[in-house]
């Protein structure tokens, strides 16, 4: 009877399934993907023919990328405790909004630029 069952004693200091860490890594992967797409968007913006379209697309891209970085950073910090709270609606909507912003910049450049 010396074995330690799942319900015994105080809560362990970390999640045995590393769920928070996996979630943080998922945010990191998503940030990397967002960075790649933002770089592609920036490349397209530099080559856009009417410079105004390129400028607008570059501004949207930069704002969106910074916004995504901020959202991901905040969420990665908030998953630090062993039993983190669920993702907030605000963060989910902001991350989705960033993807939509990149898509908007892409439509602008594809059609006009």
């Amino acid at each position: 009877m010396s074995g330690r069952g799942p319900g015994d004693g105080p809560a362990p200091a970390r999640d045995p399934g590393l769920q928070p860490e996996r979630t943080r890594l998922a945010w990191r992967r998503t940030t990397l993907t967002c960075t790649v797409v933002a770089v592609l968007a920036g490349r397209g913006a530099l080559r856009s023919d009417p410079a105004a379209v390129g400028g607008a697309a570059a501004a949207v891209t930069a704002a969106v990328w910074l916004c995504f970085l901020a959202v991901a950073h905040r969420r990665m910090r908030s998953t630090a405790p062993p039993r983190p709270a669920a993702l907030s609606h605000r963060a989910a909507l902001a991350a989705t909004g960033c993807v939509l912003g990149l898509a908007l910049a892409g439509c602008l450049m594809a059609v006009i630029g």
């Binding site: 993907t33 797409v37 592609l40 490349r43 397209g44 080559r47 450049m109 594809a110």
Partner: peptide
């Protein structure tokens, strides 16, 4: 979205 950029560029 990135695929769309790639096709365009």
């Amino acid at each position: 979205v990135g695929g769309g950029f790639a096709v365009d560029q």
